[in-house]
Design a protein around this nucleic acid. Structure first.
Lengths: 234, 234
DNA sequence: ATAATAAATGTAATTTATACGTTAATTTTA
DNA sequence: TAAAATTAACGTATAAATTACATTTATTAT
């Protein structure tokens, strides 16, 4: 590299880059958020999203995956960038920008022990306490994103077990949209996309009659996408 | 601040944070992109988006506004975060992440002189040349975002002069969606939202008869938003 | 055998989207 | 000054999607 190039860079300011994860779950018919007791100052002991500084040699998305895996023990979790939080004085310590990511996990899957070790807690989305820094804003923004995105992309399934019933799926959408849906119309709409595989088994945990289990058909969905199809729920 | 806090931060890696602007315009019925001859290594002289390093004392969004104002002379331009580009080796110089922002500007408004001084050029979106680093990816991502967002938020108007005709508006949407639209249905749909104010004047630049000019009614739009209304075009 | 419970289904009414042809206003030109 | 040319403006009929709404079914517990 030429000397002038190096000089140009050297004159510039460097800062910390962090990533914070808004981790959503779905349990007992409710949308949940996984938060943590903060272990470092400032505000040690306060509730916080989980996050980490990004290391020089890792991608931002890798940093987020690393954090998530450390905490939950899960790999291949759905995670997507939300937005950056780059206000100069957002962190009273040093200049630090954060790239927030939101993750959708199956509550049944994750390693409870690991989570408990980290002082974590699943909060009902409607009862999220005060969080440090701008984390409450991140959560609010992530919920908005989830609401919008669930409409036109089948990401809701990431929050359900692999096998689920239509009434469970409806509960999930009701929790995300914060709105009641008509069971007959919901079922019709969902099934009309032809991306659910009906299984022989029933789930009898919530009714005497039991409800048939379904699986999301990723392959068919991918094929449909290719042919210009649009997923949409409600 | 406690010593332990300081230590915790000091151990972490710092990096350069940049912002790059994807600047869209609309002229002669076509969607345009404003790009620049790069003035610094690496790849001095190559085509590039305009950008800047973020300074310690400024917000990321301020940095983007600063760049845009330097180049175009415009303030209060529509600009919104696209996403971050945080792959570890994206810039062969030093570790640098970029927060890309896309801007919509009225081509008529900007200061041509200033733009020419900066080695800028408006390219037709369909003829964008090779850009440095990951900038072509940024442009592609921004176009996708614009396509999606124009559907449910009236951001297209940011690209038109304050007064515009329905056929002009249609041309714009056709350019964004890359798809022809039916003039009768388009007019019906747009007017049904009741967010356009019809003026007495006509624009005769593109027909003998002339087409009536309209203005976007920001106030009414804001009111409608409050009452749970959804803007949607096509 | 009966009661209780949530699952599963269909149809009619309304709203929204699509497809498509004709007339109107104006300028240019013959 | 009449005719030709050109884009703007408009309406209706059909199809598709959404909404609203009530009954029957499968199963377990009593």
């Amino acid at each position: 590299m030429k000397a002038e190039t190096k000089d140009f860079y050297i004159e510039q300011d460097k800062m910390y880059v962090a990533t914070d994860c808004i981790i959503f779950g779905f349990d007992a018919g409710k949308l949940k958020l996984l938060i943590f007791k903060r272990r470092v100052e400032p505000q040690k002991g306060a509730w916080s999203l989980i996050g980490s500084f990004v290391k020089l040699e890792e991608n931002v998305s890798e940093a987020a995956q690393r954090v998530l895996t450390e905490i939950t023990g899960l790999k291949n979790v759905f995670m997507e960038e939300l937005k950056s939080y780059g206000v100069a004085d957002r962190d009273p310590g040093y200049r630090c920008i954060s790239i927030a990511q939101y993750a959708l996990i199956r509550v049944e899957d994750y390693d409870r022990e690991l989570v408990e070790k980290h002082g974590a807690h699943w909060y009902d989305m409607k009862e999220v306490p005060n969080l440090v820094l701008d984390h409450n804003q991140m959560v609010a923004d992530a919920l908005e994103r989830l609401k919008r995105k669930a409409r036109y992309q089948p990401i809701g399934f990431e929050l359900l077990p692999e096998k689920f019933t239509i009434p469970q799926l409806q509960q999930l959408y009701e929790a995300i949209y914060q709105k009641e849906l008509d069971a007959r119309n919901f079922r019709k709409k969902v099934l009309s996309h032809n991306v659910l595989i009906k299984l022989e088994e029933k789930d009898k945990s919530s009714s005497r009659r039991g409800a048939f289990l379904y699986k999301f058909d990723h392959d068919t969905y991918q094929q449909l996408l290719q042919s210009g199809y649009n997923f949409e729920i409600s």
